[in-house]
Deep mutational scan, measured.
Amino acid sequence: KAVLCADHGEKLQLFCQEDGKVICWLCERSQEHRGHHTFLVE
Rank of each mutant, 00 (worst) to 15 (best):
I23T: 02
D7F: 04
G35W: 04
W25C: 12
R34P: 04
D19L: 00
Q13T: 14
K1V: 07
A6V: 07
E28G: 07
K1M: 08
H8R: 01
L12C: 13
F39S: 15
E10S: 04
Q31A: 08
L40T: 12
L12V: 10
E28V: 07
K1C: 01
G9N: 15
Q17F: 02
H36V: 02
I23P: 02
G9C: 06
L26W: 07
L26M: 15
Q17S: 04
C5M: 01
H36Q: 05
C5E: 02
D7A: 13
E18H: 05
Q17Y: 03
V22T: 06
D19G: 01
H8F: 00
Q13G: 10
C27L: 01
I23M: 08
C5D: 00
Q17L: 04
S30Y: 04
L12R: 12
F39C: 03
K21H: 08
W25S: 13
V41M: 08
L12P: 14
C16G: 05
G35S: 09
L26P: 07
D7P: 05
L14M: 13
L14K: 13
R34L: 13
L14H: 14
Q31Y: 04
K21F: 03
E18K: 04
H8P: 00
L40A: 15
D19C: 15
A6G: 07
V3T: 12
Q17M: 02
L26N: 10
T38E: 05
A6T: 06
C5W: 00
Q13P: 06
C16A: 05
L12G: 14
Q31G: 09
F39K: 15
D7T: 15
Q13I: 09
L40H: 10
E42V: 13
H33N: 07
L26E: 13
C24L: 00
R34F: 13
G35L: 06
A6E: 06
G9V: 02
E28N: 05
I23Q: 00
E10A: 07
D7Y: 14
V22W: 02
C5Y: 02
L40V: 10
Q31I: 10
R34K: 09
R34A: 12
G9E: 07
L12K: 12
R34C: 08
G35P: 04
C5N: 00
R29A: 04
W25R: 15
C24P: 02
S30V: 03
Q13W: 03
L12I: 06
L40F: 13
L14A: 07
R34W: 05
G20R: 09
G35A: 08
C24I: 01
E10Y: 11
Q31S: 11
L14S: 12
G35R: 07
Q31D: 06
Q31H: 08
G35T: 09
A6N: 05
V41S: 10
L12N: 15
D7W: 07
L4D: 06
E28R: 09
R29D: 05
C24W: 00
